[in-house]
Design a protein around this nucleic acid. Structure first.
Length: 450
DNA sequence: TCTGGGGTCCTAGGACCC
DNA sequence: TCTGGGGTCCTAGGACCC
């Protein structure tokens, strides 16, 4: 096998820089929802000591002092650029696995091209056609390819491309000895600590451990990781993503809420979004789980958190039925007197809606063709005129909601909203769309060649 | 004052079966 | 003076990923 993994550098930051070139060479950080934590950092911001996942309030002083550009996350922009990136990468192999929003595995098995040349070509083409910087790692297994991708990012002399098989035996050994085991794909904080307690600090140390002991003490997953590092493939490329097993929609509130009405609004909106995803997947849910909780970081406040499971009679994708179940679950878990920080719903027991044995005496439970048509129409309207144009009454009418997400500094949706297109002049923009705040004009996503 | 939102897989232990 | 052996299914919790 020969596998490549292509991974964008500081993906969210690079997306922002693409439309704001003045940010090039300057420290930039993109925040998580609610402007909570750092989720993407430019090289300059990393050098200032800002950690991945670190809460904003802990490094706000640094941001002020060093004039760091701090942006709220703009998922419409990132998702669109991700699609373009994946499209270009797909041209380099018939077998592609889109692994995450900014990463893709490519199967290069049997190709005769020179690895380093191919890697350089991929980088050049993505840079030119999409505008994003990427690094390429290659190897005989996914885990080795990932490790090489790490090397390609860390070592300037590699020029963004690293192929395991092109390295000399000596170079391989040196890299393995220099690299901490925690950098390996599949070794997280906990396992790294346990490995260190056994004296294994580097990847080389980890490789020298007895596979049988690894399996016994750490489980089969880590044993596979070790085998992959030794060049034995255990993980294959998954071209078609297997059907989802669960769909989750949850959000922290911009500010904490106490009353049931606000929670009902949030749960309603989350259920609608989850049901939409469910229909996109072509599935139905057999179980709805509702969760609410207070803020665990506010240790001096009374804490409360609970989930309720509500079973559906049949796997369904009908927003109304799922919502009824969700609100019933919320009623069960809600207690007065707490300041809630987060609410969410989880759809599980997913199955194909067609493959249902209907109840002889209950003709109204399973999704009917009429239901499907209604839901399709609902989705079409909300796609056309913007999210929640049609929403259940329990979503509330008051906008903006006081618990809405905090987003201090979001960039425009440059590629998915006509009004935000960077090429349109200000006058023209006024003439065409006025101050219309509605989202995506239909089809914009597919007209990216223009 | 301020701490994200998704997912997956594996394992251990309990309930239950014959 | 004493209570088998073998199996499945389910769930909660822990680990990982981005």
């Amino acid at each position: 096998m020969r596998i490549a993994i292509v991974d964008a550098n500081n993906f969210y930051v690079s997306c922002e820089r693409l439309f704001q070139p003045s940010l090039e060479g300057r420290p930039v950080v993109v925040l998580s929802n609610n402007d909570g934590c750092a989720v993407a950092r430019s090289a300059e911001a990393k050098a200032m000591g800002i950690q991945m996942g670190q809460p904003y309030f802990q490094w706000r002083h640094l941001a002020n002092k060093h004039r760091i550009t701090v942006l709220s996350s703009n998922y419409a922009l990132y998702a669109d650029l991700s699609n373009r990136l994946m499209g270009v990468l797909g041209q380099f192999s018939p077998v592609q696995e889109v692994y995450s929003i900014d990463e893709s595995f490519l199967d290069l098995t049997g190709m005769t091209v020179d690895s380093l040349l191919l890697g350089a070509t991929i980088r050049e083409r993505v840079r030119r056609w999409v505008g994003l910087p990427v690094c390429v790692g290659m190897g005989p297994t996914k885990t080795l390819a990932k490790l090489c991708n790490h090397f390609a990012k860390k070592r300037p002399d590699m020029a963004g491309v690293c192929d395991w098989d092109s390295l000399s035996t000596e170079a391989q050994a040196n890299l393995l000895a220099e690299t901490p085991a925690g950098e390996v794909w599949g070794i997280g904080r906990r396992i790294e600590d346990r490995l260190m307690a056994r004296g294994a600090c580097s990847v080389a140390d980890f490789l020298s451990m007895n596979p049988t002991h690894i399996q016994q003490q750490f489980g089969v997953t880590l044993a596979r990781t070790q085998a992959e590092l030794r060049g034995t493939p255990c993980l294959s490329i998954e071209e078609v993503s297997p059907p989802k097993q669960q769909i989750m929609c949850s959000r922290s509130f911009g500010q904490q809420v106490t009353d049931l009405t606000a929670l009902r609004e949030a749960i309603t909106l989350h259920t609608c979004r989850a049901a939409e995803k469910l229909r996109k997947e072509g599935q139905g849910a057999g179980m709805v789980q509702v969760t609410i909780r207070t803020n665990p970081f506010q240790t001096q406040e009374p804490q409360y958190g609970r989930s309720a499971h509500v079973a559906m009679r049949y796997p369904t994708a009908d927003t109304r039925k799922l919502l009824e179940a969700a609100l019933q679950g919320l009623q069960e878990v809600y207690r007065e007197g707490f300041r809630y920080a987060k609410a969410g719903i989880l759809l599980t027991d997913l199955g194909t809606r067609g493959a249902v044995t209907t109840d002889l005496f209950d003709h109204h439970s399973a999704d009917t063709e009429k239901t499907d048509r209604l839901m399709s129409t609902l989705d079409a309207v909300n796609r056309r005129y913007g999210k929640s144009t049609i929403a259940p009454g329990t979503a509330g009418l008051k906008a903006p909601r006081e618990w809405a997400m905090r987003r201090g500094n979001t960039s425009p949706s440059y590629t998915t909203r006509w009004a935000d297109l960077p090429v349109v002049s200000a006058n023209l923009q006024q003439g065409i769309v006025g101050n219309n705040q509605s989202t995506g004009t239909p089809g914009t996503k597919n007209r990216r060649s223009s």
